[in-house]
């Protein structure tokens, strides 16, 4: 078995119009699957639903946040898809940020102001992570205290359990997960690096097809089984990333 494919384009060839895409990473440079997102922006697919914590803040926001750190030229995120008009819906905890003043509006703001018809679903970060984990774990829905007493209660079941209110949240089903990892073997076993693990390890295996971009591929056995974070069964395709993000 060898899950390594030659190029990102090949790994994403079967992505279809209207697909729901889990975008790995946290929203900052470390852990963003730049190679895969750039490749997706070069495909003729549209009406995509992007799911992620902050998957489309764009390069300028990264440069502003990084201050004196040099953002790699290879950096890319879901904002490329917004720019191309490929996005129909964004499910995120941070679609844009109020704290950074950029020269141009945030990519999602710009896309809407240009007249694109994009639906936005705001989800608390932990609820988003658990909705994705639940999908991987075969749990259709769960209750959480997060969001009670807020506008998120609207249209949701509220149940009292042990004297406290909880909201019913549903698993988030997706067609593709595009994730970042540090290294893989050809079985798809993955290890990560520091805080770049973040949503990548959460999303692995949570979609019908999981594609991982990695810094390098090693022989089976070279990754210590004690430190493998994502077992290969959760990963369908592996691509070696281009550029230096990672």
């Amino acid at each position: 078995m060898n899950k390594v494919v030659a190029s990102a384009r090949e790994a994403l060839a079967d992505i279809f119009d209207g697909a729901v895409i889990l975008c790995g990473g946290f929203g900052c440079v470390g852990g963003m699957p730049s190679t895969l997102l750039r490749a997706l922006s070069e495909l003729q697919v549209k009406n995509l639903t992007l799911v992620g914590n902050a998957p489309a803040l764009g390069l300028e926001a990264q440069k502003t946040a990084a201050r004196t750190m040099q953002v790699p030229e290879s950096y890319a995120d879901g904002s490329l898809l917004l720019k191309n008009g490929q996005v129909r819906k964004l499910i995120a905890s941070v679609p844009a940020m109020a704290i950074y003043r950029l020269q141009e509006p945030f990519p999602i703001v710009k896309a809407l102001q240009e007249g694109q018809d994009i639906e936005i679903e705001l989800v608390p970060q932990g609820t988003l992570a658990e909705r994705i984990r639940a999908a991987r774990a075969g749990i259709p829905a769960f209750y959480t205290g997060t969001g009670t007493g807020t506008l998120l209660e609207k249209d949701k079941e509220v149940r009292q359990i042990d004297g406290r209110p909880y909201l019913l949240e549903y698993a988030l089903k997706a067609d593709f997960a595009l994730i970042w990892a540090y290294q893989a073997d050809r079985y798809g076993n993955l290890i990560y690096k520091g805080t770049s693990r973040t949503f990548n390890a959460t999303m692995a295996g949570a979609a019908a097809v999981t594609v991982a971009e990695v810094g390098g591929v090693v022989e089976p056995g070279e990754l210590d089984p004690e430190i493998i974070v994502t077992p290969g069964m959760y990963v369908d395709r592996v691509v070696v990333r281009q550029g230096e993000t990672g």
Binding site: A54, S93, V94, P95, A96, M97, A98, P105, F106, I108, V109, L112, Q113, I118, E119, I120, L122, V123, P124, Q125, G126, T127, T144, G145, T146, G147, T148, T150, L152
Partner: peptide, 21 residues
Amino acid sequence: VAWIKTGRFPPAIGGAMDLAA
């Protein structure tokens, strides 16, 4: 969507609700 389109302090929940709860 109407709010974010204005570009005025676009709302972002982040981890705040989970932490507060």
